[in-house]
Design a protein around this nucleic acid. Structure first.
Length: 480
RNA sequence: GACCCUAUCGUCUAGUCUGGUCUAGGACACAAGAUUUUCACUCUUGUAACCCGGGUUCAAAUCCCGGUGGGGUCGCCA
């Protein structure tokens, strides 16, 4: 088996711009990046846009931005160029044409004129007889001069070593001659991937398992063209909860979906790397830099991994709690109502701080902080009652809060001072349980079953709004 | 259907190569408790798995064989 010229480790991620970057693609990119980084190698981004109908230019910047957002960087790519460019297959028609002509000349490939209908009919027939659908080679010796170009696959066994799956063997007798180009100007996937990996001197092909059975014919193509065969590593697939392949039909599969919902890039990286890999230790939280050190392809799992959102939420929450309030506020801004812009920065910081331990993802902040910005609260009056409290008890508790909070000067209106006043008050109100005073207060201020504590809330709302909401609650109880 | 890959708690997994230390470890989720005015956070505890059947062996989650389950691929998509 031929080797590539340089010893240098060169890997690539080659998405096709037919849609947003798939979260599984992001993981493939990550694994490639980590492998390159830790081996002092190079990571190449290549755009596989040979399918002219389905590829759309607009997805390229999208893919690039999302990868960058994750923290993945490449040494060569369509945006930054490099010595092995161009990095878009649509710009390499001449290169493919050259190699196609060689294959044609050497009779390793031929033109085929079979109609789509004819092929489909044969395929159906074969399948109905329990056979593997396979092209019958009808045009092989016809010497046509136009049509699609097929690469001749002779019956033989192809063995190769996969870094993750170990030795794999395929019987090529089961495969028909594969179409490698629509015509000289339009080469297809199996062909372009082989040519590009060679031209770009890729040493390791790290990609998803769905390509495992495509590998032997790509190896045959390499041999026919006199190329070396790179080292392969096929990653386990990401699965839905029902263990089917995570595909477009099934909920959120684009990295941007998770980005928009407010998952942090460091959390996504940490989560997806653990889907199919683990260090063999009990450590589970990793920064990208730590992963570069600790990641190893040998420890990659063989079977598919279910994408478990609950675990993503947990990891995301962990990273959210680690943020400084300032940083978290910045991240949350897009999820806050416009009114938040009119609030003092300090107050907004306090609002975010009051939610920090509760956030699973940034978008949760919208609902969680709604009551701060609302003019009037609306909630079930019964919610004001703590345990067995009646309307009169609630009224008494709230009136007590009202009178003592009125006394507190605006300059001393902060969570600490409020606590100093309210805690003794609550203890006096009911010696056994502070909740008889604090719960109705908190509900009056938030209108919620669950929220931060009343001192914090009152601090954020300020004296005027706090007293107003207490009054509202007192009268709410009365008029209803 | 054919071919290929794969199989440890519900989920992600450690352990499998080099059989005994595994009455199978960790994490998420779940449940209970502690703390707390509530929720969250934090802490403690608990429930929960070696796919099945043979074999090899003093001994098998670990080795071998056969089933079964799951997934992928079989395109003029990538």
């Amino acid at each position: 088996m031929k080797k590539n010229k340089s010893e240098k480790i060169r890997v690539r991620f080659a998405p096709s711009p037919t849609g947003a970057l798939h979260i599984g693609g992001a993981r493939s990119a990550l694994f490639n990046y980590l492998f390159a980084k830790q081996n002092n190698g190079e990571f190449i981004l290549r755009i596989e846009d040979t399918d002219r109908e389905r590829s759309e230019l607009k997805w390229v910047p999208e893919i690039i931005d999302e990868l960058k957002w994750l923290g993945i960087e490449w040494n060569e790519g369509p945006d930054i160029g490099g010595p092995f460019g161009p990095y878009k297959q649509s710009q390499k028609t001449d290169v493919y044409k050259k190699y196609l002509e060689i294959l044609l000349l050497e009779k390793k490939a031929y033109y085929c004129n079979c109609s789509a209908e004819e092929l489909e009919a044969k395929r159906q027939d074969q399948q109905s007889r329990g056979l593997a659908p396979k092209y019958d080679g009808k045009c092989r010796d016809k010497n046509h001069t136009e049509g699609v170009i097929r690469f001749i696959i002779h019956a033989q066994k192809i063995k190769f070593h996969d870094l993750i799956r170990k030795d794999v063997e395929f019987d090529m007798g089961l495969l028909g001659d594969v179409v490698i180009a629509k015509n000289l100007e339009q080469a297809l996937y199996h062909f372009v991937v082989v040519v590009d990996d060679f031209e770009m001197q890729i040493s390791h092909v790290i990609r998803a398992e769905e390509h495992l059975s495509n590998t032997p014919r790509q190896i045959l193509l390499q041999e026919a063209l006199g190329f070396y065969t790179p080292i392969y590593a096929h990653l386990p697939l990401m699965l839905n909860a029902d263990r089917s392949k995570m595909a477009k039909r099934s909920g959120d599969v684009a990295l941007s979906d998770y980005h928009m919902k407010g998952y942090l890039p460091e959390a996504i990286v940490n989560f997806i790397v653990l889907l199919g890999w683990n260090p063999g230790t009990e450590k589970e939280i990793f920064s990208l830099a730590e992963l570069v050190k600790e990641f190893s392809l040998e420890k990659v799992q063989k079977s598919g991994a279910v994408f478990n959102t609950q675990r993503l939420d947990f990891i995301n929450g962990l990273y959210i709690r680690e943020k400084s309030v300032e940083a978290l506020t910045k991240l949350c801004l897009p999820y806050l109502p416009e009114a938040a812009g009119e609030w003092p920065e300090k107050t907004v910081h306090k609002i975010i701080a009051s939610c920090q331990s509760r956030l699973k993802k940034l978008s949760d902040i919208t609902d969680m902080t709604e009551f701060f910005f609302a003019e009037k609260l609306s909630f079930d009056k019964k919610m004001l009652a703590w345990k067995e409290m009646g309307d009169l008890d609630i009224r008494e508790a709230l009136l007590l809060c009202d009178t003592s909070l009125k006394e507190l000067g605006a300059s001393k209106w902060n969570a600490e001072e409020l606590e100093k006043i309210l805690v003794p008050l609550a203890e006096k109100f009911n010696t056994k349980n502070k909740g008889y005073l604090l719960w109705p207060l908190r509900v009056a201020l938030s209108g919620r079953e669950a929220s931060a504590g009343p001192f914090e809330l009152a601090d954020i709302l300020g004296k005027e709004k706090t007293l107003q909401r207490i009054q509202d609650a007192i009268h709410y109880g009365k008029t209803k």
